Amino acid sequence: MTTSSQSNEKTYFNVHTTGLGFLKRIREVTPGGRKRDAFLACAISALTGTGDKPTYRYLDVRVSGSKAQELVRSYAADVEAGRPVLIQFRVGDTFSDVFVRTAGDKAGMPDATLKGRLLTAAALDLSMLQQVVQHQLDTRGLGYINRIARSQRDPSLRHCSLVMLNGSVDEPVYRYVDIDATDPTVVALLDQYSDDVQAKRKVLVSFRLEDLEASFFTRTKGENAGEHSPVMKSTLSYIGTIKVDGQEVYRDPSKLVHSEMASENAEAAPGIEGADVSPATTPQVDTPVDQASEQTAVDNVPSADAPESLTESAA
């Protein structure tokens, strides 16, 4: 018989990217193969940076949430006509992918884009943009700190590799992100646990990244030399919790004071850490869901040596 605690147990790690952006390229996609169903897809030109001079990050997403599908379809005519449609979004399973441009001055050249699943979306009035001073493109989840290096140019800067956990707890997918850290609190935490990282202990953190970016590199060694491979880049702006080999060694002090939400999450899914990330400046569509208990992945994660993508120069 299934107990209440078993029915409430979470079984997935989620990487969630949230922000504001413009709807683009709404279309129905029919994959090859008889057993593969058609699906709704769209693109989002996500806003990041200052309100008066934003930068755009392109996300090509499959529309998964039922309400998100309704919203996207309702604005298909506006997008087709070139009218701007501003949305607030939450994308899950974010990753980078390489493609080859087919038109324009860069036709035939490789490039990279962020991909994922559009889980939730809400349409916003364009006047909302006038109120934004700083656009937040935030990515949250759980991951392992893989390596830490001091910048030779800036003593206050740290470079590190983050291995994000995504998918099933039993067989998680590992997404590598090449990140910088400049926030003094984050830098101090990385320095404090750098010996553990160097000793190949499993340093698991709940994190928030800012301004996730897709890129690619060209392999120069081995049998895959010349191949273009995707990589993500970002800034590590916040660490909520740290566990070393499964033992919690740090929790954001503000979370110890404001722990009501964390207690509710713990009752629903013991061992949750990803939900500990503090709210972003951009208002959320809703509360992130289905963060997993991480213990199985802690027990089974392979040694997270930096892949070649993080040791070669990115394009």
Rank of each mutant, 00 (worst) to 15 (best):
E227L: 09
A122D: 15
R251F: 02
T48L: 07
N224S: 06
V163Y: 12
D196Y: 06
S66P: 13
S263I: 14
Y238D: 14
V15Y: 00
S234K: 09
E308M: 06
A181G: 10
K233P: 02
F217A: 09
F99C: 01
E9V: 06
V205W: 10
T48N: 10
L86S: 01
L236G: 05
V133L: 10
R73W: 11
S229V: 07
V15M: 05
A122Q: 15
S254T: 10
P54W: 04
S215M: 01
Y174Q: 03
Q198W: 12
V61Q: 06
Q136N: 15
D299R: 10
R117S: 13
V15A: 11
R140C: 03
L40G: 09
R25G: 00
P288N: 07
L142W: 06
S7L: 02
S229K: 12
V298S: 07
D196P: 04
A269W: 03
P283A: 07
S151G: 08
Q295A: 14
T18A: 08
D170L: 13
A188M: 08
D170T: 15
F217R: 14
L129E: 05
S215N: 05
S263R: 15
S263T: 14
E273M: 15
A76P: 00
Y144I: 05
T120K: 12
V72P: 02
A297Y: 00
S64C: 04
D305E: 14
A306N: 12
V301E: 13
D245Y: 00
S234M: 01
D138N: 07
D305F: 08
M109R: 11
R73E: 10
A292S: 10
A280C: 05
A122W: 07
Q131T: 13
V61W: 03
A268T: 08
T11W: 05
V100K: 03
K243F: 01
Y193W: 03
T182A: 11
S237M: 08
R158Q: 10
G226I: 00
V298Q: 12
M261Q: 15
A76R: 11
F39E: 07
L256C: 13
P110Y: 13
T296L: 14
Q6R: 09
E273D: 14
L162R: 02
D93K: 00
D138W: 02
V277R: 03
V289H: 14
G82V: 05
Y250K: 10
A275P: 08
S254R: 12
R140I: 13
I242P: 04
D286F: 10
S237R: 05
D245L: 00
H258I: 06
K53N: 14
E9D: 12
A77Y: 04
Y75M: 04
R73N: 10
